[in-house]
């Protein structure tokens, strides 16, 4: 298990190794979630998808598969936000390096 910390004003994207990615899904009315970016269907980038502000569901941009908020929560690492400080627990060895970035746009966080 690896615990990471970052400020949501500075970073919103985490990469582990070559394929594992997480983005900060942050919509009004829903707790910010370190959402697994990889669509379980064919690997599409969920951060480029759309989200339903009311239900919190996210739709993949590739094949328009929709994931409910509980389904997203089950695939996402344990996360807690205090103010703008985010702490997440990734299910990887503690010494595995991760990269924290800031994506200019997380489309899934934008209003439809």
């Amino acid at each position: 298990m690896k615990v990471i910390h970052f400020d949501s004003r500075d970073q919103n994207f985490v990469t582990v190794g070559d394929h594992e990615r997480y983005f900060l899904l942050d919509r009004p009315g829903h707790a910010p979630l370190m959402c697994n970016d990889t669509c379980p269907h064919r690997g599409g980038p969920l951060h480029l998808g759309t989200s339903d502000e009311r239900t919190g569901a996210v739709t993949c941009p590739w094949h328009e598969t929709t994931y409910t908020r509980p389904a997203l929560e089950r695939r996402s690492p344990a996360t807690v936000r205090v103010g703008t400080r985010i702490t997440a627990v990734l299910d990887i060895p503690a010494d595995m390096p991760v990269t924290l970035d800031r994506k200019q746009r997380i489309l899934a966080n934008e209003c439809l």
Binding site: M1, A31, A78, T79, V80, R81, T87, A88, V89
Partner: peptide, 21 residues
């Protein structure tokens, strides 16, 4: 307002989180 909790919490992830905090 200040604190939100999300994602898939297990006893294992909680132990790691608490030890770190």
């Amino acid at each position: 307002d200040e604190i939100t909790v999300s994602g898939n919490w297990t006893l294992e992830s909680f132990r790691a989180y608490a030890a770190d905090a």
